[in-house]
């Protein structure tokens, strides 16, 4: 297995507030894993732990890559990006006062990606033609759906092996949520990406996920080994769907 991300027993928080309690999960190459949970349950914190933006107070985050093990809790964010992990942050977090193209170029900031910048830029424009038309436009002046596309395209500019997507549906109209999720699926198929997607929208997420975890109050309450297991579980219904 060329790529495996393992999160083991991770505790993390913000000073007095503890957001994660002994969270464990794993993702192997080629999988699309959904991390499901409503607001405030620790999805973003977990994503940030993987990216090295929040330091866990306990536990381990390891990335196995071509036989080598990397302890992500000891690496800086830019080193993690260099390993081939890329994140689409929640609420998109574009560079609103830079143009679409500049946003994309910044996605290829890491040294490895800088060499392939023209190729990756062409891919991005092929995947999202609307971005090409608007490449001189300021990112902040685009619609929410287009901004989400740009955020995804920007993450792809670093030619990642593992893509983390934090709540792609936030602030989007239902039809755009559907488009975005479909785009992630297409990208995955095309580039052989491994995807970890945090999402509140259960039905959209399970549409493209191979399997999923449910996180409640900073703990993984259910580890669904298949989408069917997620959909049929009573616990899921009571915890998550409210039925």
């Amino acid at each position: 297995m060329a790529l495996k991300l393992t999160v083991e027993n991770v505790d993390a928080g913000y000073r007095a507030v503890r957001a994660l309690h002994g969270v464990s999960l794993d993702i192997v190459q080629g999988e699309t894993v959904a991390l499901l949970g409503t607001n405030g349950n620790g999805k973003s914190t977990l994503m940030k732990c993987i990216m090295g933006m929040v330091r866990p107070t306990g536990g381990a985050v390891t990335l196995e890559l071509d036989g080598q093990r990397h302890d992500l809790t000891r690496l800086s964010t830019e080193e993690i990006v260099n390993l081939g992990v890329s994140m689409v942050p929640e609420g998109r977090r574009l560079f609103p006062k830079l143009t679409v193209e500049e946003n994309l170029l910044l996605g290829a900031f890491r040294a490895l990606a800088r060499g392939e910048i023209t190729k990756n830029l062409a891919y991005s424009y092929e995947m999202f033609p609307a971005l090409k038309e608007r490449r001189r436009q300021l990112a902040g002046s685009m619609s929410g759906g287009q901004q989400q596309m740009l955020a995804i395209a920007r993450a792809l500019m670093s030619a990642p092996k593992l893509l983390l997507v934090d709540e792609p549906s936030v602030g989007l109209a239902p039809i755009l949520v559907s488009h975005t999720i479909t785009a992630i699926k297409e990208l995955k198929q095309r580039y052989g990406l491994t995807v970890l997607m945090a999402e509140q929208n259960f039905h959209q997420a399970v549409r493209i996920a191979d399997r999923g975890y449910i996180i409640v109050h900073g703990e993984i309450v259910f580890d669904g080994r298949s989408v069917a297991a997620l959909e049929q579980n009573d616990l899921v219904k009571s915890y998550y769907l409210g039925t």
Partner: peptide, 16 residues
């Protein structure tokens, strides 16, 4: 310029 706009997103993109 990236970190002036959004420091968090700059970090996600691998900007040191």
């Amino acid at each position: 310029r990236a970190l002036r706009d959004t420091e968090e997103a700059a970090e996600c993109s691998g900007v040191p």
